[in-house]
Design a protein around this nucleic acid. Structure first.
Lengths: 146, 146
DNA sequence: CCGCATCCGTAACGATACTG
DNA sequence: CAGTATCGTTACGGATGCGG
C-alpha cells in the first residue's frame, strides 16, 4: 500500500525551511523532567479532565462523581482523584459520619487550570466538524489508491 | 494503610453542595462521540503535542523531527504524523527526489490550535513548581501515617 | 458509602530488522 | 531518506470481591 503519491498533488512550497530547529533535549527539560509533560499526562488520561470539568460547578462526593461521569469505574475514579489530589489540583475532605462521606473540590490551582482547559475545549467544539470532514477525506484518499 | 484521616485536619466547609450537578451523558455527547475527547486523546498521547510544538517554527522533514523530539522512535513518529495528518492538523508533502524527501507542516487548523495549547503550556510552566511541592507534601503525608 | 486489592485481557509502546 | 513489519514487554483499564 504505497502512500508515496499523497500530498504533492498541488503546488508545493519551498523544500527547505531555514528557521532554526527547535530541540527539546537541549533545553532545560529533556523529558523525564518536562513540566509540560507532567501536565499533559493528566489531560491525556481518559478521565481526569472530565473530573475537573465536573468539579467546576462545585464540590462533589465520590458517588456523585461516578454518576456524573458516565462509564467510569470505581477503580479509575479513585485513581484519577488520587492523582489530582496528589498534584494539588483538588482537595479531599472526609466527614467522619457513619457511613463516611467524602467530598472533593477544586483547589485554587485546580480552578486556575479551568481557563486554559476551557480554551482547548472551545477549540475542540469549534473544530470537531472540520476534523470529522478531514478524516473522511483522508480515509477516502487512502482507500482510492489502495 | 488507612487514608481516612487525611484532609479534614482543618475546618471543613459545608458538607453538601446545592449546585446542580453536571452530567455528561445527558448532554449531546455521551462519549463515543465526544468532540472534546477527540481532541484530548491527541493531546494526551505521548508525542503528538511535541510534534505540533516542534512544527510551530516551520516545516520539518521526517528525520529532522526525529532528531528534534528526543527519544521518539520511528514507529511512534510515523504514527503521530499519520494521526495528525488524518485529522487535518498537518499536511504532508513528498518531493520525488532520490532519495525521497518528505516535509510536514502545520495546516491552518494546526496553527490555530497552537494558542489554546500554548495557554496550557504556559499554565504548566507557571505551576509545575507548585505541583512538585504538592507532590512532596502528599508523599510525606501518606508516608508519615504508615 | 468509600475505596483498596487482585486478576486478567487488551492496547500502547520500544527495539529491531527490512524495503523502495 | 522515509518509512513498514514483526515481536516482546509493559502499562492501562475493566470486573469482581473484600474491608473500614
Amino acid at each position: 500500500m504505497s502512500r508515496l503519491q499523497k500530498g504533492n498533488l498541488h503546488p508545493v512550497p519551498a523544500p527547505a525551511a531555514p528557521t532554526p530547529i527547535q530541540r527539546w533535549d537541549s533545553m532545560g527539560f529533556s523529558f523525564s523532567n518536562c513540566p509540560v509533560r507532567d501536565v499533559l499526562d493528566h489531560i491525556g488520561d481518559k478521565w481526569t479532565t472530565l473530573v475537573l470539568l465536573t468539579l467546576q460547578t462545585g464540590a462533589r462526593r465520590f458517588n456523585e462523581l461516578q454518576r456524573a461521569v458516565p462509564d467510569i469505574s470505581k477503580r479509575m475514579l479513585t485513581q484519577s482523584l488520587r492523582s489530582l489530589e496528589r498534584d494539588g489540583l483538588i482537595t479531599r475532605h472526609v466527614f467522619p459520619t457513619k457511613p463516611p462521606a467524602v467530598e472533593y473540590r477544586l483547589s485554587q490551582m485546580g480552578e486556575s487550570i479551568l481557563m486554559p482547559l476551557g480554551a482547548l475545549v472551545t477549540w475542540a467544539e469549534r473544530h470537531h466538524e472540520q476534523i470529522r470532514v478531514a478524516r473522511q477525506q483522508f480515509e477516502q484518499a487512502t482507500d482510492t489508491l489502495g
